[in-house]
Amino acid sequence: MADLGRQRARQGPLNAVPVAIFLLIGFAAPLLGVIIFSFMPERTFSLWQAPGLGNYATIFTGTSYLSLLWSLGLAAVTVCLLAVICYPIAYGLARVFGRWSTLLTLLFTIPLFVSENVRLYGWILFFIKNGVMLGTLKSLFGIEMESWLFTEGMIVLGMVYVYLPFMLFPMTLGVSMVPQETRDAAFDLGASKWQVFREVDLPLAMPGIMIGFLLSFVLAVGALVEAKVLGGQRVIPIVHDIELAFTYAQNWPLGSAMAVLLMVVVATFVLLVLRRFDLDTILGRR
C-alpha cells in the first residue's frame, strides 16, 4: 500500500505536465508578455528595450485614469443594484416558486444565448424617440418625453441587465444553502423576520452572495459595449481606452500598462474581499 502511495505521489507531477505546459504557453506567457510590454517605451513593438514607468505615468497625466475610475464606479453601482434586485428573485427561486423555478431559471438564461450587442440594440429600440416606450406613450396618452438614451443611467441599466444572471445564480445557490430548520429555529427563539434575515439568511447565504458579487464585479469592470451602445460614448470606460491603444493608436505598451493596472486594482479588490469573507469559514469548514 505504502509503495503504491509513493508511486502515485511520484506520478502526480508527471501527469500534470501536459496541463502545466498548456497553461504556461496559453496563459502565463501572454500575461507575462503584457506585463513586460507595460514597462517598454511608448509605441514600441519590441520586448527588449530598457524598461521604464513612462506608460504608467501617461495614464495619470492623461485622461485614462478617469476612464479607470468610471469603469470601477459603474461596476460598483451595477453590483450594488444587482444585489438588491437579485436577492428577492434568488429567494423566490430557492424557496417560493417551487416547480416554477426551473422555468424561470430558463427564462433568465435564454437571453445569454443571444449576442450582447443585439440585446443592447434591443434596448435602443425600446427607449429611442418614437420607439417602443416613448412612441407608445405618445400615441396612446399624448405624453412626450425626452429619450433617456445616452445617459450614465442607461449604461448602468444595460450593465445590470447584462450581468444579472452572474449575480442571480450564485446568489440563488447561496440562498438555497440556508437550511429551513435553522431559519425556523431563529424565528422560534424570538427573532423577528428581519432579525432572521440579518442573523441567519444573510450570513449563511454569504458564500453565494460573495461569489455573485465578485463574478459580476469583475465582468462589469470589463464592460465596454454598454457604454458604447447605450451611453453613446458619453462615458469612456477603461476597456475602451485599452482597445484604442492596441488598435487605432498602435501603442501597445500604453495599452498593456492600462491592462496591468486594471488587473492589479481588480485583483487587489478581490483578494481583500476574499480575505474579509473567507468562504471556507463562512461555510463552517475551517
Binding site: 437550511p179 430548520e181 435553522t182 425556523d184 429555529a185 431563529a186 442573523e199 441567519v200 450570513p203 449563511l204 463562512i282 461555510l283 463552517g284
Partner: peptide
C-alpha cells in the same frame, strides 16, 4: 429541532 438547527457561523 431534529437537525438541531444550530447556527454554524
Amino acid at each position: 429541532f431534529q437537525s438541531l438547527a444550530l447556527f454554524p457561523h
